[in-house]
């Protein structure tokens, strides 16, 4: 599998990273190098193997249904690049 420039652009869109046109070509070449190297995994016989998502071998622990947080609007908004009153603000979105 190899990444053509259109695919690189599409992935850039999905990842929300703006790519300048010269970057598309250079990045495509790098990504192809990495993916080509990764293709060695095709040698591995994975028939009948259950996928392993993580290293922790246990079931999920549950929390009690108790309100423990909230009422800290100022701390929440303190790092916001654009704050309007009690809200985070972004350029207007049209739905």
């Amino acid at each position: 599998m190899s990444l053509d420039p259109a695919t690189v652009r599409r992935i850039g869109k999905l990842a929300r990273i703006r790519l300048a046109e010269p970057e598309v070509v250079a990045l495509g070449a790098e990504l192809n190098g990495i993916l080509g190297w990764i293709e060695q995994l095709n040698e591995v016989d994975i028939d009948g193997i259950e996928p392993l998502a993580g290293a922790a071998q246990m079931a999920l622990r549950w929390r009690d249904d108790v309100v423990t947080e909230g009422g800290m609007r100022d701390a929440l908004l303190a790092n916001a690049p654009d704050r309007e009153g009690d809200f985070f603000a972004v350029p207007k979105v049209v739905e």
Binding site: A15, R16, R18, N79, A80, P81, F88, V90, P91
Partner: peptide
């Protein structure tokens, strides 16, 4: 670029995201 950290200007939200992250 919405709740914390660096933000680049953008005409719309998508452009803001893409420039911020680039």
């Amino acid at each position: 670029g919405v709740r914390f950290g660096h933000r680049a200007a953008g005409e719309d939200l998508i452009e803001l995201y893409e420039r911020t992250r680039a």
